[in-house]
Every structure is written in C-alpha cells, then in structure tokens.
Write a protein that binds this DNA or RNA. Structure first.
Lengths: 180, 180
DNA sequence: TATTGTTATACTCTATAACTATA
DNA sequence: TATAGTTATAGAGTATAACAATA
C-alpha cells in the first residue's frame, strides 16, 4: 500500500470567533474524501446494498427475500440438511434460520423431519412447490449475476469473487487468532 | 411439536415415502452450494461484516463507530460541509446523519453554524477535539486497511477497490435507468 | 412549490441468551 | 455436560414520511 499523506484541515480553536457572516458550504463536486477513497468498508456496504437491491427488484413479488434464496437452495441441493448446517453454510446463527424455515414450512415449500438416529436434529427437505420456487428464483438469480457480470466486466468476475473469499477467510482467521 | 404426517410426496414424487427410519443429514464438509458459489451478494455481506468488525475491534472503546468515522472525516476535511452533502457523500439519507451530528456536537467534536446566505443550511466544522478524535481514528483506520491489504494481497488491492466502485456505479445507474 | 434539517416511527437483518428436549 | 432447535428480545443501521423553517 502506498504511503499517503493528508493535509491538515482547519478547525475551531479556543478563542476562535464563530463568524456567521461569510460562511458557505464547500462545492459538492469537489469534496475532499481523504482516506475514505481507500476505505473498503464503505464500498463493501454500498456494493452489498446495490447488489441486494438488484436481486430483490428482480425477484419482484416472489415473497421470498434474497436471504431466503440461499437457504432454500441449500435445502433443495442437500435434502435432509440440518438447521445447524444451514446456519453454518449461510454464515448465520441458527436462531436466524428458524424463522425462515418455519415460514417456508407454512408455505408448503419444505417439510421438516426428525432424524431417527438423533432426535434433536431437524432435517429439511424441499417439497415440489419448494423445488419449483427455488428454480424460479434461480432463474432470476442468473439474470442478477449477469447484471453483476456486466457491471464489473467478465474478465474481473472470477478474480473478484476469489478476492472476496480471501478477504473473508483471512480476516476471520486473523480475528480468531487474536481471540475474536 | 410432535411427529407430523404429510401427504404423499411433498417434495418428492408420487409414490415416494417419507421414511423417518434411515434419514441422515448430509456430510457438512461436502454440502452442495450450487449457484451459491458464484453468488456475490452473500460474499459481499460477509466481507462487509468481517471488515466492519475488524475496524470496530481496532477502534476499541473509542465510542465512535466505523460509520461515524466517515462522517467525521468528511467534516474535518471539508469545513462548513452541509448535512445534505454529508448524506450524499456517505450514501445515507439526511435523516440518518442528524443523529450522528447531534451526538458529535454534544461531545464537542463539531460545531454547527447557519449559512448566512441560506439559513436553512447547517454547516458543520470540527473542533480541536474533533480533529484529534478523527486523527486517532484515522491512525487505526490505516492499520485496518493494512490488515485488509494483507488479507487480499497488495497486488490485488487497487483492482479490488476499482471493481467495487464499478459495481456500485454501474448497478446504480442500471437501476435508475429502469426507474429505480 | 421546493429544499434543509428534525423528529417519530418502522423496517430488515441479525445476534444473544434463556429455555426444552434430547444426547 | 453438551448440542439442536425454539423463542423472546434487542441491537445496529438505515429509510420513510410528516413537519417547520426558509427559499
């Protein structure tokens, strides 16, 4: 990373007179962002927001949110997946999974069975309706991924995902190394 | 909730039996993620979470959240910036800015003046305390950016930011092109 | 009429902690 | 004791909409 220096900014000091007379707002188009230009966190937030909104808009009134697509896809592709597995695979606490599963069950998209060998475990299986629903959402997800592809350029797509995964993995392992 | 019975074949095909006897959860390490492997949105969410958490942990008990750093930096670097400008520059609604500004004002980090030429406009200026606070946070932000750099590799850093910015810009313009 | 900022409210997504039932 | 899932609750971050003051 390059070393950057930033100019000091003028501030209010003791004894300064707060003159109301000639003060104006700076020009909006030439605001100084300083270190914020490199501040990945802000861009990650906005990138997530815009990507989320793109997918949500494509789903329309599908009743299922982008977050539910992840869960339903895991169930369709891994029949008899447990709720803890769903939570781990989607990087959510198990308590965050319960509500989604109950809703899908009420809608008839999934059924939940009890494991015979360990009756604590609830196994989720997609119904035909759930499979159809997932397929419809996946078709829209493909369009969404295509729009992401267009937005960043196909030649950067694979690298971008790999970089995101590296960021997550390495930052998480660094965090747990210093004790969370 | 007790054992449930389901109509024949919810989820599977006619004639399938929902056997409770031999069903087991799939192997956690070999779950099939299907399209989710390419599903950028999920990685953006997790990347934002881990990056946010890394910065927050570095800030410690600084009382200022990562989100406040953006706002305070804009004020320090652009004295007399208006609240609408802060909102636009930080991609937040003006109503989300008010609370942060009032808190900073109460803490003595900023003062707010009225524009002489347009008395609707509130101009924010950092105090000496605010400038010191921002400088302390910026020092920690640099450490944070270094850890991001380490996580993704310095040779990919510039490209990664550029890709994030392109994703935001192109996806937002595509959204407004089709009418939000 | 339009814009700046404030306020009250609510929404989304998620986590924490206490609980049960099983192991 | 430990784990799977449920529930109630809360928190963070943000937006929407109605409003007052000003343009």
């Amino acid at each position: 990373m390059d070393k950057k220096t930033y100019d000091a900014a003028p501030g209010i000091r003791d004894g300064d007179v707060l003159s109301y007379g000639s003060v104006q707002a700076p020009d909006t188009d030439t605001l100084d962002h300083g270190i914020l230009h490199e501040f990945i966190g802000m861009y990650l937030r906005r990138a997530h927001e815009t990507a989320y909104e793109d997918f949500r808009a494509r789903l329309g009134d599908d009743a299922l949110h982008p977050g539910y697509f992840t869960i339903l896809t895991l169930i369709v592709r891994n029949p008899h997946i447990s709720q803890t597995q769903i939570g781990t695979a989607s990087a959510r606490d198990k308590s965050s999974v319960t509500k989604a599963l109950r809703w899908m069950e009420d809608e008839g998209m999934i059924v939940r069975l009890r494991s015979a060998s360990d009756r604590r475990i609830h196994l989720s299986v997609a119904t035909e309706k759930g499979i159809r629903q997932q397929a419809m959402m996946e078709a829209k997800a493909i369009g969404h991924l295509q729009s992401l592809n267009d937005a960043i350029g196909s030649e950067r797509y694979a690298t971008f995902i790999a970089t995101l995964k590296d960021l997550i993995r390495n930052l998480e392992s660094a965090a747990s190394a210093r004790g969370d």
